[in-house]
């Protein structure tokens, strides 16, 4: 077996608040090669915090501990800030949820892509500009030169998210974390963005961690799925074997999916067993 790109073992993310300690992630372990891993779970299940912890961007007052948290052999917990910074953006990147908030409103899209590129590559401005334009073309912008000089508020949500993808992939990272990349988009646009993301990930042979609350989407998009509940991984399975899920939480989620063929009304509700969260 190939050496894994990302190793996560017994990852904990704790927030020390005045009201006590909140443990958002409680012992998550997984390994990732150059494959697509989906992490599904409801709000507050710790899926996003898992992604942030890998990037070392757990917001204060959060604390990250793990038996092992390593990217390509580099221990992320003991690495220097400088090493982390070269990894961030350079080799690990993240696409965030809503381009309306994740793009800087007072910088042009082109400027933001150039900045991402120049943070990691010794390149002249002209080279960076060419690279940014090529990247905008790669995310299927109809008129890259025009989009390059637009501000984020001047583009649609779908274009904004494609610009975000262009910005995060301009450095050719090895691992992309996509944190609900399509939740803020409407359905048709989200399919287009996913197709582009899919293409780029396949083309460049990146590892992908796809975080979503959409079980159907994740299973069609990824090779493997982790189901998280209350900060723990309750189930890990191959995406195509989703129907073989054993954990009652996953089974419950599956039952709640509406289908066109068997119209069940009302849809069953999910009954949470307190013992799952233990």
């Amino acid at each position: 077996m190939m050496k894994p790109l990302l190793e996560v073992e017994d990852l904990h993310v704790r927030f020390h608040l005045r009201t006590g300690i909140v443990e958002a992630v409680r012992g998550v372990s997984f390994q990732l090669g150059r494959e697509r891993l989906g992490i599904v779970g409801e709000s507050g299940s710790g899926k996003s915090q898992t992604g942030r912890a890998i990037l070392g961007l757990t917001p204060p007052p959060g604390e990250v501990t793990a038996k092992r948290l390593a990217f390509d052999g580099v221990d992320l917990l003991t690495a220097s800030k400088r090493t982390l910074r070269t990894l961030r953006g350079g080799r690990i990147s993240m696409v965030m949820q809503d381009p309306k908030y994740s793009l800087n409103p007072v910088m042009t899209i082109g400027e933001q892509i150039i900045e991402a590129y120049q943070a990691h590559a010794k390149a002249s401005r002209a080279e960076a500009r060419d690279k940014a334009l090529a990247m905008l073309e790669a995310v299927k912008m109809r008129d890259p030169v025009r989009v390059f000089s637009l501000y984020p508020h001047e583009v649609s949500g779908g274009m904004g998210q494609r610009a975000m993808i262009a910005m995060m992939l301009v450095t050719d990272p090895d691992l992309l974390i996509a944190d609900e990349p399509t939740s803020a988009l409407d359905v048709t646009v989200s399919m287009e963005v996913l197709r582009i993301l899919d293409e780029l990930v396949a083309e460049r042979g990146m590892g992908l961690v796809f975080i979503s609350h959409d079980l159907k989407l994740v299973s069609s998009f990824c090779d493997r799925v982790l189901v998280m509940y209350a900060g723990r991984v309750v189930e890990e399975l191959e995406a195509r074997n989703l129907h073989e899920a054993k954990h009652p939480y996953t089974q419950g989620l599956m039952r709640c999916l509406p289908t066109l063929a068997n119209d069940v009304r009302p849809l069953p509700t999910l009954n949470r067993d307190p013992s799952w969260a233990l």
Binding site: L55, L57, R85, T86, L87, R88, G89, G90, S93, M94, M96, Q97, D98, Y101, S102, L103, N104, P105, E115, A116, A119, H120, M164, M167, M168
Partner: peptide, 14 residues
């Protein structure tokens, strides 16, 4: 506290 600040950190900026 805005998202674009996190995005800027993700990009590996100082």
């Amino acid at each position: 506290a805005q998202e674009y600040v996190i995005a800027a950190r993700v990009k590996g900026l100082s």
